[in-house]
Structure formats: structure tokens, C-alpha cells
């Protein structure tokens, strides 16, 4: 989970429970990343030129990241116990390969989805041959997502 131009890059990272995540700082300024989400409490000063240990995410759930120096920075780490997961691309598509035959539950999540979470889970059976597509149509669309503006070095006056 990098930081550039006072933004988290990527804004949303999906990892498996038990993963360790590096927080390099490729910005021109220091950051102080924190989370007080139930899934992970941590405080990680990221001063430039210093090396930082990775953070291990050992509880499932959503971890909302902030920066104590730059209030407008928000990032998300979604820690999932699911065996198969990923992030959709710019077209909203995600391809999972080599799934064994069986019954699965699909859960989708984004900080910008306004639809009720219950409408975004689905049970599917994977037959094990060929490709299979599942399509979710959001009724309410995505919440008004602020387009993050790369910040110049402003001070909070």
C-alpha cells in the first residue's frame, strides 16, 4: 500500500487473512498511517528514508486507513478469509481462474456501493469446465465517488 501525491495507491487493497502488507512511502513528504478499525489497530509513521516493517493483517474485516498528517487521505484494506478474491478492473470485471468444481458464495464490496449488502451476495455452482460468468447489476449505482485530487504540498491553515 503505497502513498503518492498524498493519496493511497491503490485506494483499495484486498488481501487474505494473515497477509503482511508493506507500506513503502514514495511520496515527497512523510506520512503517519493509522487505523482504528476493529479488524486492525495500528499506527505506522512513514518518515522518508526509513525502513518500516510490514503490517500483518490477521483478522478478517475492513481496515480503513488514514494519515495523521493529511486528513484527506483515505485508503482501504479488505482482509478476507475467502480462498478466491480480487479487485475488479476499470470495466468492473474480475476473472478468477482454475476454480475447483463446487458451490461458492460470491460477495462483492466497495466503499462506494450504495446498494444494500444483502443484494450483493449470490450462491453459485461451478461446474468445473469452461468459463462461467456472473453479472451483478447495481440498482443504486456507485456513490458519488470523489475523484481524489493529487495534492500539492499544502499546509492545513
Amino acid at each position: 500500500m503505497d502513498q503518492r501525491n498524498r493519496l493511497f495507491v491503490p485506494r483499495l487493497l484486498v488481501v487474505a487473512v494473515g497477509s503482511s502488507v508493506q507500506f513503502p512511502n514514495n511520496d515527497s513528504v512523510s506520512h503517519q498511517v493509522y487505523s482504528f478499525s476493529p479488524a486492525k489497530h495500528f499506527q505506522l509513521p512513514l518518515y522518508k528514508g526509513e525502513i518500516h516493517p510490514p503490517v500483518v493483517f490477521d483478522q478478517p474485516g475492513l481496515v480503513v486507513l488514514g494519515c495523521n498528517i493529511h486528513d484527506s487521505m483515505v485508503g482501504y484494506i479488505y482482509v478476507t478469509p475467502a480462498p478466491y478474491f480480487g479487485s475488479t478492473d476499470a470495466h468492473g470485471a474480475l476473472i478468477l481462474k482454475d476454480l475447483p468444481k463446487g458451490d461458492y458464495q460470491i460477495v462483492i464490496w466497495s466503499p462506494y456501493i450504495a446498494d444494500a449488502p444483502a443484494t450483493l451476495t449470490r450462491l453459485v455452482r461451478v461446474e468445473g469446465t469452461g468459463s462461467q460468468a456472473e453479472r451483478f447489476q447495481l440498482k443504486l449505482g456507485l456513490r458519488d465517488e470523489p475523484e481524489p485530487k493529487p495534492r500539492r504540498e499544502n499546509w492545513d491553515y
Partner: peptide
């Protein structure tokens, strides 16, 4: 320090950006 009033002077050193 400057009080938090100006919405223009947000540059380093209270510079108007």
C-alpha cells in the same frame, strides 16, 4: 500561528495558492 479562517492561503508559509 494563523487562525483557521482563510480558504485561499493554503500554501506553505500561508501563501495564497
Amino acid at each position: 500561528f494563523y487562525m483557521p479562517v482563510s480558504l485561499e492561503n493554503r500554501g506553505i508559509g500561508w501563501t495564497d495558492v
